[in-house]
Amino acid sequence: SDEELKKRIEELVRRGNKDEARKLAENANSDEARKWWEKLEQL
């Protein structure tokens, strides 16, 4: 689900694993996940 995906992306970003988070968001084929990633990346 998008919610689970967003949690995983956020967790990866928090751990400093941005590349992994980006790949996850891009491969998810989910606009919501991509937007979430872009938002987190700004922080």
Rank of each mutant, 00 (worst) to 15 (best):
K23A: 12
K6Q: 05
W36V: 04
W37E: 03
E4F: 07
D19N: 05
E32M: 10
N17Q: 14
A28T: 07
E3N: 09
E3T: 09
L40G: 02
L5E: 01
L43G: 09
R15L: 14
W36P: 01
D2C: 00
R14C: 13
E10H: 06
K39M: 14
E26C: 04
R22S: 05
L24S: 00
K35V: 10
E10Y: 10
D31S: 08
I9F: 04
R22C: 05
K6V: 12
R22W: 13
K35S: 11
V13L: 15
N27V: 07
G16M: 01
N29A: 11
E26P: 00
R34T: 06
D19A: 08
D31L: 11
K39A: 13
N17R: 13
R8T: 09
G16D: 02
V13R: 02
Q42L: 11
S30R: 04
E32F: 10
E10R: 06
E10W: 13
W37G: 02
A21Y: 01
L24G: 00
V13N: 02
K18F: 15
K23G: 03
L5C: 03
E11K: 03
E41L: 15
R15I: 13
D19I: 05
E41H: 10
E26Y: 12
D2A: 10
D2W: 15
S30M: 06
L12K: 00
E4A: 10
R15E: 13
D19H: 05
E38R: 05
K23D: 07
A33W: 14
W36F: 14
K23F: 08
L12M: 05
R15F: 07
G16W: 01
I9T: 00
R8D: 02
E10M: 12
R15K: 13
L24N: 02
E11V: 04
A25R: 01
S30W: 09
W37H: 03
I9K: 00
D2V: 14
R34E: 03
L40T: 03
E41K: 10
D19F: 04
N29R: 07
N27F: 12
N29K: 13
K35Q: 11
R15C: 11
E3G: 07
K35G: 09
R22K: 13
L5F: 06
A33T: 14
W36R: 02
E41V: 15
L43K: 08
E20R: 01
E4V: 08
I9G: 00
I9V: 04
L12E: 04
S1Y: 13
E32L: 09
A25E: 02
E38T: 06
L5V: 05
N27K: 12
G16N: 03
E11H: 06
N29Q: 12
L5N: 00
E38V: 07
D2M: 15
S1C: 12
R34A: 05
A28V: 09
L40F: 13
Q42D: 07
D31Y: 08
R22L: 10
L40S: 03
A33S: 04
D2E: 12
A33D: 04
I9D: 00
L24F: 03
E20W: 03
K6E: 04
E20N: 00
K35H: 09
R8C: 11
N17M: 15
L12A: 07
D2K: 06
S1E: 11
E4M: 07
A25V: 15
K6R: 12
A25L: 14
A25G: 03
D31I: 11
L40H: 04
I9N: 00
E20Q: 06
R22Q: 08
L24C: 05
K6L: 15
A28P: 02
E26W: 08
E10I: 10
E11Y: 07
L43T: 09
E26F: 12
D19E: 14
R14E: 07
E11D: 11
E20K: 03
S1T: 12
E10C: 13
K18W: 15
I9Q: 00
L5Y: 04
L43W: 10
E38G: 05
E11S: 04
E26T: 08
E32P: 05
E10T: 09
L40I: 10
R8N: 04
E10P: 00
I9A: 00
K18M: 15
E26A: 09
E3D: 13
R15Y: 06
E4H: 07
N29I: 10
D2S: 10
K39D: 10
A21P: 00
E32G: 05
E26I: 10
Q42V: 08
S30Y: 05
A25W: 11
L43A: 12
K7N: 11
S1A: 12
L12W: 02
E3V: 08
E3Q: 09
E11N: 04
L5M: 05
E41G: 07
R14L: 13
W37M: 13
E20H: 03
K7M: 11
E41A: 14
L12N: 01
L12F: 04
W36A: 04
A25Y: 06
E26D: 06
D31M: 09
E3C: 13
Q42W: 07
N29V: 07
R22F: 11
D2H: 11
N27G: 11
E11Q: 06
Q42N: 09
K6P: 00
L5K: 00
K7Y: 07
R22H: 06
D2R: 08
E10L: 14
R8W: 12
K23Q: 12
I9Y: 01
K35N: 08
S30D: 06
L24Y: 04
S30G: 05
R15A: 14
L43P: 05
E26S: 06
L5P: 00
A21S: 00
D31W: 07
I9R: 01
E20F: 01
L24P: 01
E11G: 03
K23H: 07
E38N: 07
A25I: 15
E20A: 09
K39F: 14
E41D: 11
S30E: 03
R14W: 07
N17V: 02
A21G: 02
R22N: 03
L24M: 06
N17K: 13
E20M: 05
E38S: 08
G16H: 02
W36K: 01
N29M: 12
L12G: 00
A21I: 03
R34L: 14
W36M: 05
D31G: 06
R14A: 11
A25C: 11
E3H: 10
A28D: 03
E38P: 02
W36D: 02
E41F: 13
A25M: 14
E38Y: 08
D31V: 08
L43D: 12
N27L: 14
L43S: 09
E4D: 13
G16R: 00
K35C: 08
L40Y: 11
E10A: 10
L12D: 00
R14P: 00
A21H: 00
L5G: 01
S1F: 15
S1M: 15
K18H: 14
R8A: 10
V13Y: 15
K23T: 08
E3S: 09
K35R: 12
D19T: 06
R8V: 09
W36H: 09
A28R: 04
L12T: 01
L43Q: 12
K39G: 08
E3I: 09
K7F: 07
A28W: 13
E32V: 10
N29W: 09
S1W: 15
W37V: 14
D19S: 06
A33K: 02
E38Q: 12
A33N: 03
W37P: 01
E41Y: 11
R14Y: 07
I9P: 00
R22I: 07
K6C: 12
E3F: 09
D2F: 15
L12C: 07
R14T: 07
E32T: 08
E32H: 06
A21K: 00
S30L: 06
R15G: 12
D31T: 08
N27D: 12
W36C: 04
E4R: 05
K6W: 15
K23V: 09
D31P: 11
L12V: 01
D19M: 05
L5I: 07
R22M: 09
N27E: 14
A21E: 01
K23R: 12
R34G: 03
G16S: 01
A33Q: 03
D19Q: 07
R15D: 11
K7V: 06
A28Q: 04
A21N: 00
K23S: 07
K35P: 01
N27T: 13
V13I: 14
A28K: 02
K18P: 07
D31H: 08
K7E: 05
S30P: 03
K23M: 10
G16K: 01
W37Y: 15
L5R: 01
E41N: 14
A33M: 15
D2Y: 14
A28Y: 06
R15V: 10
N27W: 13
A25Q: 02
K6M: 15
R14H: 10
N27H: 11
L43R: 09
R34M: 14
E26R: 03
W36Q: 03
G16V: 01
E38I: 09
Q42Y: 09
D31F: 08
K23E: 11
K18D: 05
A21F: 02
A33C: 02
R8K: 11
E26V: 06
N29Y: 08
A33H: 04
E11L: 05
A33Y: 10
S1H: 12
A28H: 05
D31A: 12
K7G: 06
N17F: 14
V13G: 00
R8Q: 11
A21C: 02
L40R: 02
N27M: 14
